[in-house]
């Protein structure tokens, strides 16, 4: 059974289960939805979607970790996922480049499309997908190799460069774009593990952008860093927005407010509310979002 719903100016055909999520009460202004409502509040679609997720469910063995989440991720936007610990935001993030495949008990249903291709389709190549959708992790995880080797790893395995000088240039370029070049110029061949936490994380970002992905997923990239290092990373994210679509999971609402254009709030596996960052933080429409924003829990 299918049904046609009109949201904004767009008309999309959706099946019933997804329609549940489409409760779009934006016209109703300031009205706050009650706690019991587990359906997504806010507009899930965008004009120029890079990734489109519809009815995504994730299970760990028996545990239902993500419940029927649908949203669009726009081209060259920064979207942030916020929510209390264990709400499933990281799990959802890891679905976007199929990192969950490495966990054997994990099962994903629903649809996630990247440029109109379903990434869970059989003939999709995980290797290619991950090259297109890069990821930066919560804890900086440089390989126990030199800084240079860390950056060169991706281009090498994908055969992106032919000569040593091209590779050198690519490494320098990536470090430059990650704003790390000045700090490491003289120590390119020292181990990456010798850098400070913030530098390590920027190294990991440089490593991710070295293969020029289309989307970058960031899983709480600043949670292990001090404020100064955090500020640098946020600055970097702002610059990267020009060329990349960035999805960032964060614990810090201030950070979400600072770096992202859209924000989605997750709670116990449900996506409770999504909308423009300004609106979410100034004018939440769901009780749960409001409680979280105002610091009543989380």
């Amino acid at each position: 059974m299918s049904k046609t719903t009109t949201i904004g100016n767009q008309t999309i055909s959706l099946n019933d289960s997804i329609a549940r999520n489409e409760l779009d009460n934006q016209e109703s202004g300031v009205q706050v939805t009650d706690y019991d409502n587990r359906q997504t509040v806010g507009k899930i679609t965008v004009d120029k979607p890079k990734m489109v997720c519809r009815g995504v469910n994730v299970y760990y063995s028996q545990k239902h970790a993500i419940k029927n989440v649908s949203l669009d991720i726009g081209t060259n936007e920064v979207i942030s996922f916020i929510g209390p610990s264990g709400c499933g935001k990281s799990t959802f993030l890891r679905c976007l480049n199929r990192m969950n495949d490495t966990i054997t008990t994990c099962r994903v249903t629903g649809q996630i499309k990247l440029d109109n291709e379903d990434i869970y389709e059989k003939d999709i190549d995980v290797v290619q997908l991950r090259a297109r959708v890069g990821m930066v992790f919560q804890k900086p995880n440089p390989f126990p190799k030199s800084i240079y080797e860390n950056i060169a790893y991706g281009p090498r395995i994908h055969g992106m460069v032919n000569t040593k000088s091209e590779l050198d240039e690519l490494v320098r370029d990536s470090l430059e774009r990650a704003g790390l070049i000045k700090e490491v110029e003289k120590r390119m061949h020292e181990p990456g593990t010798g850098l400070s936490g913030g530098q390590q994380q920027r190294l990991c970002i440089a490593r991710a952008i070295a293969i020029n992905p289309e989307v970058i997923l960031m899983d709480e990239p600043c949670s292990a860093l001090d404020p100064i290092a955090t500020a640098k990373i946020e600055e970097l994210i702002d610059e990267l927005r020009e060329n990349y679509t960035i999805v960032i999971v964060t614990h810090s609402m201030q950070q979400a407010a600072r770096v992202s254009q859209r924000t989605a709030y997750f709670h116990l596996g449900d996506m409770i509310e999504i909308g423009d960052t300004d609106q979410i933080f100034t004018n939440p429409r769901h009780k749960l979002t409001e409680d979280y924003i105002t610091g009543r829990f989380g």
Binding site: V46, K48, T75, E77, E242, N243, Q261, D276, T277
Partner: peptide, 15 residues
């Protein structure tokens, strides 16, 4: 709804 899209259309880096 106003999605804050980047002001300029994205350009690939120089190289």
């Amino acid at each position: 709804n106003k999605i804050m899209l980047p002001a300029s259309t994205p350009e690939r880096p120089k190289s």
